[in-house]
């Protein structure tokens, strides 16, 4: 457990706390984004080798042990895009909800029901 891992755990818990306690739906999406970002950081951290080079081939290929692992980075790219898609869908649902109810606040929505 390094300092970086502690920060990632902190980010995850912060996001989770935001999702659980906030009543505004847009803030809840912010919370989910922070939770997801903490996992992305963990993925990139997993690939990292201290003193390593980016996984880009060039004519004088360096020592293989000194290259960071490219697979988690490829996964992170995919995860970023998936996260963006999820955020977009959730925000569009919030806009639709606002069109019907005129609010994005969970407490007010419960009263309307």
């Amino acid at each position: 457990m390094t300092f970086a891992h502690l920060i990632m755990l902190g980010l995850f818990l912060l996001g989770f706390w935001c999702v659980l306690t906030e009543t505004d739906l847009i803030k809840i999406v912010v919370g989910f984004n922070i939770m997801e970002a903490s996992l992305l950081l963990l993925l990139v951290k997993m690939a990292y080798v201290p003193g390593g080079r980016p996984p880009i081939l060039f004519p004088a290929a360096p020592d293989a042990a000194k290259i960071v692992d490219p697979i988690p980075q490829a996964l992170t790219l995919t995860a970023i895009v998936i996260g963006a898609a999820t955020t977009a869908l959730m925000l569009s649902l919030i806009v639709q909800l606002h069109r019907h109810y005129g609010t994005t606040d969970l407490d007010e929505l419960r009263e309307i029901r």
């Binding site: 809840i28 996992l39 997993m46 697979i71 988690p72 998936i82 999820t86 959730m90 649902l93 919030i94």
Partner: peptide, 22 residues
């Protein structure tokens, strides 16, 4: 909206498990 909140949580937990396995 309710569905997507649960789906995101499930997806994140799944991703974490996959990362730990990797």
């Amino acid at each position: 909206l309710r569905y997507i909140v649960f789906s995101i949580v499930a997806g994140l937990l799944f991703l974490l498990a996959v990362m730990l396995l990797y």
